[in-house]
Simulated assay, not measured.
Amino acid sequence: MKPIQLQKTTIDIPFVDVDGRTQLVIEFDRSDENIKRLYDSFEELEQAKNDLSVSENEDIFEDTRAFVKKTKDPIFGEGTFDKVYALSPSVLIVVVYFYQMAMALKEELEMDDFKNFEDKYLS
């Protein structure tokens, strides 16, 4: 019998500088519970991004910082917000990064689902 190849259970998300050097790699755990948390967070993250970009209220930055840290650290690992914020000390930029991460992960997970379906039924 041919052995079953175990699939990688994480997705690496590299952060690179303008010269292409990796500054940070975040690992996304592909567990069912973590994928559910990611999908559940889409609307709230998009709303935070929109609120920050149009607000002049200074309190919203601290409120958003606390919110994003509370919702993203469980998805991407404890301390992730602080690591990303250290690269770009702007709540708005960090929210955009997390939004980009979420959208890229969603796309990758959907492509994996399609590829698995294709391999199983169309090959």
Score class of each variant (00 low, 15 high):
Val18Arg: 09
Pro3Leu: 03
Lys83Cys: 07
Arg21Asp: 12
Gly79Arg: 03
Arg65Tyr: 13
Ile13Met: 07
Glu56Leu: 15
Lys120Thr: 14
Asp29Ala: 11
Tyr97Lys: 02
Asp59Asn: 14
Asp119Gln: 12
Lys8Val: 12
Asp59Cys: 06
Gly79Tyr: 04
Asp29Trp: 01
Asp82Glu: 14
Phe98Ser: 03
Gln5Ala: 13
Leu122Thr: 03
Lys120Met: 12
Tyr99Gly: 09
Asp51Gly: 01
Asp17Trp: 05
Ala48Thr: 09
Met111Gly: 06
Ile13Phe: 03
Gln23Phe: 02
Asp113Leu: 12
Leu38Trp: 05
Phe42Arg: 12
Met101Cys: 11
Val95Gln: 01
Glu110Phe: 00
Leu24Asp: 02
Ser90Leu: 03
Ala102Gln: 06
Lys106Leu: 08
Phe76Lys: 04
Ile35Thr: 11
Arg21Ser: 10
Ala104Met: 10
Gln23Gly: 02
Val18Thr: 14
Lys70Val: 05
Leu6Tyr: 09
Tyr85Ser: 05
Gly79Phe: 13
Ser53Thr: 08
Leu109Thr: 05
Ile60Asn: 01
Asn50His: 09
Asp12Gly: 13
Asp112Val: 10
Lys83Val: 07
Asp119Ala: 11
Ser53Ala: 13
Val54Thr: 15
Thr71Ser: 11
Glu107Gln: 08
Tyr97Trp: 00
Ile11Tyr: 03
Phe114Val: 09
Phe61Leu: 15
Gln5Tyr: 12
Leu122Val: 13
Pro74Leu: 12
Ser31Gly: 08
Val54Asp: 04
Arg30Asn: 12
Glu33Cys: 08
Asp82Ser: 15
Glu27Ser: 13
Val68Lys: 01
Ser90Ala: 12
Ala48Phe: 07
Glu44Ser: 11
Gln23His: 02
Asn57Arg: 07
Pro74His: 05
Ser31Val: 00
Phe114Asp: 12
Tyr99Val: 07
Val68Ile: 15
Gln7Ser: 11
Lys115Met: 13
Asp12Ile: 05
Glu27Pro: 06
Gln100Glu: 15
Thr9Val: 11
Gly20Glu: 12
